[in-house]
Design a protein around this nucleic acid. Structure first.
Lengths: 340, 340
DNA sequence: ACCCCCTAGGTAAGCGCTTTCCCGGCAGGT
DNA sequence: ACCTGCCGGGAAAGCGCTTACCTAGGGGGT
């Protein structure tokens, strides 16, 4: 592998000169030399070693992103926003999938720290477990103390900036919509128990229930894993446990789509017999039949904002917290409960 | 930031010893010392600088992945496979989105090269433009000559290993299915012209047409961009340009879903009046109404294999090329053309 | 009791680059 | 003609780590 020194030797100059030229540093260099060096660079196909550069410069260029799973549409959309901003700033993005495993997330924070990334964006990280949260927070603070920037998507309970999606209000919106339509027997397909996304959205739903004079019993809430098949299975359980069920709220659209499939399979008309509402407003939600009513979260925008926070040259005027509003989107999967 | 030297000083040992301990090198170290050092590491919250480590060790750990767009379900699924294998091997993955822009792709190859990644996996890179392909190939070869491994998903026209999805045969499968059902007026929603994925799939379709005594005229092929809305627009154009159309083949499922929406909007029954077939078998394809007939490609598996190739400690017994078979999946969106 | 060898730990030379400092030479001012 | 000041370029000291090589003891063998 050609090194800077090789180029210097070839061009008959010092390494300092070569370095200045390839980084076009402010220091002026005679045109003739510059050309000779550039020629040598081309001949030797010199590609500077980024590790050495970073070490010598002590600067940080890449930014790390930790998400649950890029292939999940929810995170895919957030990631798209993150990437766009990073690219605009000329930053390399390192994406890490934690697969919702707190330990892996912890390990990735260390890894990104070790690799001297300029910033870490934590997407969808919100664990109910307090010790985990504390450990995560500790690592993030350490990272910050070495000059790294931290930006979190989700609850603001960590060091660093945050953009928080309004999960609780969103849950309320979904519940309120259902109760307003006249439903009284509603079931909930929740996400994984250990995620605050789940608990927050559920809390909103409970608040709506309470406000309308109802409550969500244990049998009315089934926990799943935020993906389609889990949603289908949960819908089946819900139907079984609650004979008079007229509405289902799924805590994300993937599960809602699964539920829809389950309902269709059993010949249950949506929304004629059972209403269904999702959460997130994934691109697919509009393409299923009936199109899914849901609570929209501006996912890509959330990504954009989170990365912007991570990249701001914040002279520490304290962490910034932004909110991303949830919005009710009524489509064809919700209606009044059947008369009887 | 605490450095190795700080830890050494704190523990009253040399940096060599600390290094040996934190890397638990084979060289034996007295238990007392080890503990003292580990204590110092903990107190100082020492996180080794990965750049310095890589520089000193001259080893390569991370692997780079260049895809068109992780948030596109097609690549999301491939990426999932890639990630899984990389993680199993304890490798950090750097994901780069080229957004189908060859120049960006070129730039990323340089970047990953500079960062001393152990391997580069190029997913979905296949450009029709020869100069581009040549430049890409040049860069990849250079990278390889410095010890990097290259694995490509797509046509095998580059240096390195490859897993090639059977795009042409897949296109044939789709076309053959339609013609066998008795369709004669079929329209095609193609992808971007500059991608070989498009040209290959289209070639398969043309071969099927020819074999059945038909041919695809210029008006029967509309180019779009591989995403939903492009598919919808293309379907509209197709309908307009071909009054007697009874079948549409979309070169991927996203566009097929868009086409489906367009058809529904115009009150055209699928498959009663127009049959529709997609490509890829995305997870959503089963959830639209009617469920989409398509040509399945084992995307996640392709990712798994590509990463396995990239990570094999290939003692250069020449590049390996694997094929991934396309398989016809008939669901509800295809039927015989309406009698008249 | 002596020698040898093995072992635990240290010394220091890099890895490939950046950047500070320094130096030689040239032009311009007096 | 001499001095000053400036400018292009080089020497070399790191950046934070790894590792080949070396050294000082201590234990065992005779």
């Amino acid at each position: 592998m050609a090194t800077l020194a090789d180029v210097a030797r070839r061009a008959g100059v010092s390494t300092a000169t070569v370095s200045r030229i390839i980084n076009n540093s402010p220091k002026p260099v005679a045109e003739a030399l510059r050309e000779r060096v550039l020629a040598a660079v081309a001949e030797l196909q010199f590609v500077p070693n980024a590790n050495a550069q970073q070490l010598a410069r002590a600067d940080r260029t890449a930014v790390g992103v930790i998400v649950h799973d890029v292939s999940d549409p929810y995170f895919a959309e957030i990631t798209r926003g993150l990437q766009r901003v990073a690219t605009d700033h000329g930053r390399l993005v390192i994406i890490c999938n934690s697969y919702r495993d707190p330990e892996r997330e912890l390990a990735y924070v260390d890894l990104l720290h070790a690799h001297q990334t300029a910033a870490i964006v934590l997407a969808g990280s919100g664990y109910v477990d307090a010790p985990i949260t504390a450990r995560l927070d500790g690592k993030l603070r350490l990272y910050q103390s070495t000059g790294g920037r931290v930006s979190v998507i989700g609850r603001h309970e960590h060091a660093g900036d945050a953009v928080v999606p309004e999960n609780e209000p969103g849950g309320y919106l979904a519940g309120d919509a259902l109760y307003r339509l006249g439903h009284t027997a509603v079931g909930v397909i929740a996400g994984p128990r250990h995620l605050t996304t789940t608990t927050d959205r559920l809390a909103g739903l409970r608040r709506a229930a309470k406000e309308h004079g109802h409550r969500l019993g244990a049998k009315q809430v089934v926990y799943a894993d935020f993906d389609r098949n889990g949603g289908a299975a949960a819908a089946a359980t819900l139907l079984e446990q609650n004979p008079g069920l007229t509405a289902i709220a799924a805590l994300n659209d993937s599960m809602a789509v699964g539920a829809l499939a389950c309902l269709r399979e059993r010949g249950i008309d949506v929304p004629g017999q059972v209403s269904l509402i999702g959460f997130d407003d994934m691109p697919i939600s509009v393409d299923v039949t009936p199109p899914l009513s849901t609570v929209r979260l501006p996912l890509e925008e959330i990504g954009v904002r989170a990365m912007s926070l991570a990249l701001r040259d914040g002279d520490r005027e304290g962490p910034l917290v932004e909110h991303a509003a949830a919005k009710l989107v009524l489509r064809g999967s919700t209606a009044a409960p059947p008369a009887r």
